[in-house]
């Protein structure tokens, strides 16, 4: 054992701590005007994203009843062997909802990452 090289020195660290002295988290904690601005921007960003997804939902799925009401023959038109109404409401709507959800989760997480990066920066 004595001849063997001493084991290489390993640096033991905990999970990354985001609070850096002088970081902007203190502004948020103290609810200064700057801190409120950061929070306000995160809230606006996330709300805008949510409302955007809901608008797309309303303009695609939400207008279908009105469309079928105004153009009565439309939902009976045969597409791929099914009436269009059945194809849209019975099948196509589900992958579409999933796609909207997936896009939302990606963007919402990116917004949070941007926010984390922003407030973890040390003031120069």
């Amino acid at each position: 054992m004595s001849q063997a090289d001493p084991p290489e020195r390993v640096r033991v660290t905990g999970p990354p701590r985001r609070r850096t002295p002088g970081g902007r988290t203190t502004d948020i904690d103290a609810e200064t005007r700057l801190g409120d601005m950061y929070m306000g921007s995160l809230l606006r960003e996330q709300l805008r994203l949510a409302l955007g997804v809901l608008t797309v939902l309303a303009l695609t799925v939400g207008v279908l009843p009105l469309l079928f009401h105004l153009v009565p023959g439309l939902s009976g038109v045969g597409v791929l062997g099914l009436p269009l109404g059945w194809l849209l409401l019975g099948v196509a709507v589900y992958p579409w909802l999933l796609a909207l959800g997936w896009a939302y989760v990606r963007r919402a997480e990116r917004n949070e990452d941007d926010f984390t990066e922003l407030v973890s920066e040390v003031e120069k």
Binding site: R18, T25, M39, T116
Partner: peptide, 8 residues
Amino acid sequence: HTPETLDL
């Protein structure tokens, strides 16, 4: 609204 990784 803030991610849990932030120490706030």
